[in-house]
Design a binder for these strands. Structure first.
Lengths: 220, 220
DNA sequence: TAGATTGTTAATCGATTAACAATC
DNA sequence: TAGATTGTTAATCGATTAACAATC
């Protein structure tokens, strides 16, 4: 964080962090949280780097971009560092998420408990198929898609997961944007077209696995 | 591809393509395959770039890294380009994959039909829980984990997906490496430690979704 | 004090973009 | 021929790594 004086007013430079760094932060956090309770209270960037097999300068630079609690010769207080990372990443305040598509993947995500740790609360899933509505197997409800608009507007939900068949992905995407969704994670191989004010992330598990397979075949 | 003469022998430079490019190739391929049958037989890098909202030079450079079929003023023959990309990415010959963990996610992946298109064949899932063994709901079998070693060795399967609870991830990882698995896709938030000759990819859905959420909250 | 560790400044590396000659 | 499009070479940009001064 940098402070600038401009015409007598203090302007705080918006902490603009690159996406590459942003993707590494949860990895540091995960490791720190996995440390046993009886571990020493401080840790050095060198130690973190060695365990995670990263460059130590990179770790130090990444952490410096987020917080300011490193002490020469001592390192970082683990508790504080966890706190800083969680605060920075927004894991401390909950964000509601809905899922569209209650097929096998949709249901798996709906009942996955691990989201909470990342500040995410899956509220409900939606589907067009009446036979999956209700949901006996989970504590989280599955509603008919016609209820989506009302729920999202009432609860001001802005994040949606698309887990429908690829053919209906674009239609569903357009629909949930109309319902107020602003950020979309798409598990379909179909590349969604969205307005510029909407954020869309594409997760193509099959493509990722195929690249892993290619990497293996090349590793002679 | 470049050819070099060295002491009278033709050496074909190994087509070493960066990971960033590699990740974009399936996107091009997906778009090309989505084109209707009555579309014109040729397409230009400019068109592809515009549709996918990428730089046109980038598209051209990426494609040039893979194939050599672009013709000035005409563009690329769609059929041939699809063929080149599929061949390059290895989607044409099948690779067998096993899944460890037949919980909700494991089962979702087991019955997902979309892998075939990427040259991947999910052979079976494995679990320790006797109640999920057998699998009534799918054409693909679920075996007890004790059968894993034998099957992988018999079929020479080298790719494994870990979809078990985070606590058992490392133990399962060590075990399947012993069984001959060489490339691992881990859906657990736990960061696996693997020997240097083993490839491990980590997919942390919750972390990705959390970053999407953060991006949204910053987009003022 | 000396050693370990931090954060920063400079150098390197790789990827993207811009400019342009080649060509159907 | 002129225009569209390719692939390549050069310039820019961003990220990683190396070097080093500051410090507990």
């Amino acid at each position: 964080m940098y402070y600038f004086f401009a015409e007598g007013v203090i302007i705080i430079e918006p902490k603009c962090i690159s996406r590459v760094i942003l993707k590494r932060l949860p990895i540091y956090l995960g490791y720190l949280k996995s440390l046993p309770n009886d571990a020493p209270p401080h840790i050095s960037a060198t130690t973190i780097a060695n365990v995670l097999q990263m460059g130590e300068v990179q770790v130090r630079k990444d952490l410096a971009a987020v917080c300011d609690i490193g002490k020469p010769k001592i390192g970082y207080k683990v508790r504080d560092l966890i706190d800083e990372l969680e605060t920075f990443l927004g894991f401390k305040d909950m964000n509601d998420v809905i899922i569209v598509g209650a097929g096998k993947l949709g249901k798996a995500l709906l009942s996955y408990e691990g989201f909470r740790e990342y500040g995410l609360s899956i509220v409900a899933a939606f589907d067009v198929d009446d036979t999956v509505i209700g949901n006996m197997n989970s504590t989280k409800p599955i509603y008919h898609i016609s209820k989506l608009s009302d729920l999202c507007q009432r609860m001001n939900i802005q994040i949606g997961i698309i887990a429908v068949p690829a053919e209906s992905a674009q239609a569903i995407c357009d629909y949930i944007i109309k319902c107020g969704i602003k950020a979309i994670m798409n598990f379909t191989p179909y590349l969604l077209k969205v307005p510029s004010d909407i954020i869309a992330h594409h997760v193509n598990i099959a493509a990722s696995l195929a690249l892993l397979s290619k990497q293996l075949s090349e590793q002679t």
